[in-house]
């Protein structure tokens, strides 16, 4: 049996082209995923506020951080007081709800005697 080397060669060429397209699609997909992931990571790093597991869960279920039980601490290099106060640390931390009766202060209004 004669073999048409050109057709075989051509068939190899077609197969190679298909493989190439698949590889390209995979590469583009991977690059896309990598880009999306990197953007998410960059966004987290850019604001430097991460979540840490609470070191001490409030006994009554209270949570000053919105009720999700996570402490959002600052992970970057602090440049202002808010970042210093809330920088991630291994120090002991007490998290409990405010003891001020809601009827007295809503937690948002300016403090009355300042």
């Amino acid at each position: 049996m004669q073999v048409d080397h050109r057709s075989v060669q051509g068939g190899e060429s077609k197969a190679s082209a298909t493989d190439l397209r698949s590889s390209l699609r995979l590469a583009i997909l991977a690059a896309g995923l990598l880009f999306v992931t990197s953007q998410m990571t960059c966004a987290e790093v850019a604001n430097f506020w991460g979540e840490d597991t609470p070191q001490q869960k409030p006994s009554d279920g209270g949570d000053t951080d919105g009720g999700d039980g996570m402490w959002r601490c600052f992970m970057g290099t602090p440049s202002k007081e808010e970042e210093l106060l809330n920088r991630c640390t291994e120090a002991e931390r007490i998290d409990r709800p405010s003891a001020i009766p809601p009827a007295k202060w809503d937690g948002k209004s300016p403090l009355p005697y300042q």
Partner: peptide, 25 residues
């Protein structure tokens, strides 16, 4: 005000390192 959680002057109640004074907590 604006802090998430309370801290002692020291890292723990039984230490004397003033870590939270020194690092701004």
């Amino acid at each position: 005000i604006g802090q998430r959680g309370a801290f002692f002057p020291d890292r723990k109640t039984n230490t004397f390192d003033k870590q939270n004074v020194r690092d701004g907590h």
